[in-house]
């Protein structure tokens, strides 16, 4: 069963790798690039929400830090590969520091109090991006050039795809490592994990840092794909996107985050296209709200979670049948 899933993953990956060479559609490529970037972001969020059970409303701050770091480096210095690598390094260090501090605060603040704190923190970064005009150009943001290597849309598509696959592989390994298993135990029952002899704070900090760094990288790729950055990367909308993607896809499953990202991005695209048909589709956020409410009410486990449950029930039934046969 596990092998079959792996084969499915490989087939999907190969299909996506070959796609730009057989089907040339600029819009689709750009759209898929966005999907990959947001998939990385949603997966990083899932490490917090789905695996460790930490609710954060400030995940956009890591995304924004990554987005602004690359923008500032490319604008203030030169759009060359060494500066790009430096920007990646700075993103990792900055997000690691911020997420480390936030992780430490989980010690004192539980569930919704922590969520409020992260909300306030990301608000702080939003204000910083607005007011530090010499560097960020305020609300309007700024455009920047990127190294030649990333200019071609197909190349950039492939780079994003490979990054996503690598992140997926790393996080899958991470979540099924002994440490990842403890994270899930913390999600289930914090007090019990403690009395088994695990010190929870260390684990929460590790989860927070890994999630933060991954989100930073997603932000970096995001602003590179637009070659533009403004304060919108720090807004609540970005966090909500991640929340929506993980919940619709299935909390606690990495594939769910990817599927959720694909679904949301495509839905967004189609709904905006429909705006030509009727003006109501201009306000696509209304539809997202409805989808969100319906998903939480009827698919609380998300797409992947629900599929898994159906599969589990089926095997259970088969087992029962087999038992009955033996009994009779």
């Amino acid at each position: 069963m596990n092998n079959r899933m792996n084969i499915l993953y490989v087939i999907t990956a190969v299909f996506l790798l070959v796609l730009p060479f057989v089907y040339e559609s600029r819009t689709l490529l750009i759209l898929l690039t966005q999907v990959f970037i947001f998939a990385i972001f949603a997966m990083s969020y899932d490490i917090l929400l789905g695996y460790t059970g930490i609710v954060s409303f400030g995940h956009a701050m890591f995304f924004g830090i990554g987005a602004y770091t690359i923008g500032v480096f490319m604008k203030q210095f030169e759009p060359t590969i060494p500066y790009f690598l430096l920007a990646v390094l700075v993103t990792i260090v900055l997000t690691a520091i911020v997420s480390f501090v936030l992780g430490l605060l989980t010690l004192r603040l539980k569930s919704h109090f922590y969520a409020m704190l992260t909300l306030a923190f990301s608000g702080l970064f939003l204000v910083l991006a607005e007011k530090w005009r010499t560097v960020t150009y305020g609300n309007d943001g700024f455009t920047f050039r990127i190294p030649d290597l990333f200019k071609d849309r197909t190349d950039f598509y492939l780079i994003c795809l490979v990054t996503m696959i690598v992140v997926f592989a790393i996080l899958r390994r991470f979540t099924s490592s002994p440490l990842g298993r403890v994270l899930q135990a913390i999600r289930e029952n914090e007090q019990r994990t403690e009395s088994l002899g695990y010190s929870i704070l260390h684990y929460k900090v590790i989860a927070s840092v890994i999630s933060g760094v991954m989100a930073g990288l997603a932000g970096l790729l995001y602003s590179m794909s637009l070659r533009f950055v403004n304060t919108s990367v720090f807004t609540m909308d970005i966090t909500l996107d991640a929340l929506l993607m993980t919940i619709i896809g299935g909390v606690g499953t990495l594939v769910g985050a990817i599927i959720g990202a694909g679904l949301i991005e495509f839905a967004h695209h189609w709904l905006t296209e429909l705006a030509k048909v009727h003006w109501i589709f201009e306000r696509w956020i209304i539809f997202f709200g409805i989808i969100y409410i319906l998903a939480v009410m009827f698919f609380p486990m998300g797409i992947v979670g629900t599929l898994k449950k159906i599969k589990l029930n089926r095997t259970k039934k088969e087992e029962k049948k087999a038992e009955e046969k033996i009994a009779s």
Binding site: R173, S177, P178, R181, A185
Partner: peptide, 23 residues
């Protein structure tokens, strides 16, 4: 099994191994 396995893991002192597969 996982419930007990977590206790065994704690007892064995494998706490921060994050690269190897748990299997």
């Amino acid at each position: 099994l996982e419930n007990v396995r977590l206790a065994v893991q704690s007892q064995a002192g494998t706490r921060f191994q994050m690269l190897a597969h748990y299997k």
